[in-house]
Computed example of a mutant assay.
Amino acid sequence: MLEAEVLSDLANLPADPPKMRNVCDKCERPCSVCWCSALPNPPLCPKHRIVILQHPAEEKRSLRTAPMLKLGLEHDSCIIFRGKRFPGHNKDLEQILLQPNTLLLWPSQESVDLAEVASEKSFPSLNLVLLDGTWPQAKTMYSGNPILQKIKQTKLLVKECSNYIIRTQPTDGCLSTLETAAEALSILENNCIYKEKLINPLKSLCKYQLQNGAVSHESKEFRIKNNSYPKLVGKRLNKVLKSAEKFHPS
């Protein structure tokens, strides 16, 4: 009897596979949630180049911003290398990281304000390296790659809150990879068009998500200060908050 029921169920299965949603060739998202219409058209063409070192876990996130940056800039203005160990066997990346005009965006004691670097105009073009991942992932990437620690370090001094409101940020001063690059290019190029146009896809994404059930997220720092954070503050988060106070004073 059971065998007959199984055979009956198999006979009722459709002969053709279910139709898949159409996917955009550029952003590789379903066409119904594609944000490509918000990209700069034509793509922006800066003198300086963004080099993203992306943690493998970040690539798996469906709501990531690095693709928005890559598609918003001309070819080779943004290049992405994925992994945990750099440069690995990639000779092209090693060459970039060893160049004197390469900077690492990293908030350390030795970091120099990016605005100061821009005013010096020591090089006609710079390679600005960004670590793409959560804060703990970025710290692991930095500490596990000695070559990164040898690069001249710079930092952004901004007080703006992130537009990435559908993802919780550790502190009010934390920005997504896209927003960080947009701010940096606006400073280096002395042109606010990068800050204005590059983040439009992110705004479009957040707007769609909020219209379809997502909720706006305050930063962990904001919720802790307003006694609305649902968990105990651990040592790691407390260290991040103290670091933010040092490099992003209110």
Rank of each mutant, 00 (worst) to 15 (best):
K155F: 00
Q99D: 11
G88W: 02
M68Q: 15
I96M: 07
L130M: 14
E179Q: 13
F86P: 09
P100E: 10
S176K: 10
P67A: 13
I79Y: 00
L98N: 14
T134P: 12
S37K: 15
V112F: 00
P67F: 05
L39M: 13
T140I: 11
L39R: 07
Q109N: 12
P46Y: 01
Q109R: 13
A138L: 03
N145P: 11
Q137L: 08
S77F: 04
I151D: 03
E59N: 05
L71E: 10
T140L: 15
S125R: 14
K150Q: 13
E110C: 07
K91I: 07
I79E: 13
I50N: 08
E160H: 05
E58Y: 02
S108T: 11
P107W: 03
F123Y: 14
V129Y: 02
L175C: 06
H75G: 03
E94R: 13
K121R: 14
P67V: 04
E110P: 00
I79G: 05
A182I: 06
T65F: 01
T177I: 08
L104K: 02
K121Y: 00
K159N: 07
I166K: 05
P87W: 02
N145R: 09
G173E: 02
K60F: 00
Q169Y: 00
N127G: 01
P43K: 06
L128M: 09
P46V: 03
L105Y: 01
T65K: 13
L157K: 08
M141F: 03
S77L: 11
M141V: 08
G83K: 11
I96Y: 01
H75K: 15
E58A: 10
P67Q: 12
L98C: 12
V158N: 12
A115R: 15
T177A: 14
L126A: 02
L63P: 01
R82Y: 00
N90A: 14
T134A: 12
A118Q: 10
G144H: 08
H89I: 08
S162K: 04
Q54H: 07
Q54T: 08
G72C: 14
G173V: 08
T168K: 15
K155S: 09
D132S: 10
D132A: 12
I50R: 06
P146N: 12
L39Y: 02
V129C: 10
T168N: 12
E160R: 15
L126W: 04
S108H: 01
R64I: 05
K150W: 00
L53M: 09
P46S: 06
P43Q: 13
L126Q: 05
P87E: 09
E160D: 13
I151W: 04
E58L: 06
T171A: 14
H75C: 09
N145F: 07
R49A: 10
G144N: 15
A115Y: 01
N90C: 15
G144Q: 13
E120P: 00
W135N: 08
T140R: 14
S125K: 14
L130S: 03
C78M: 05
T177D: 13
G144S: 15
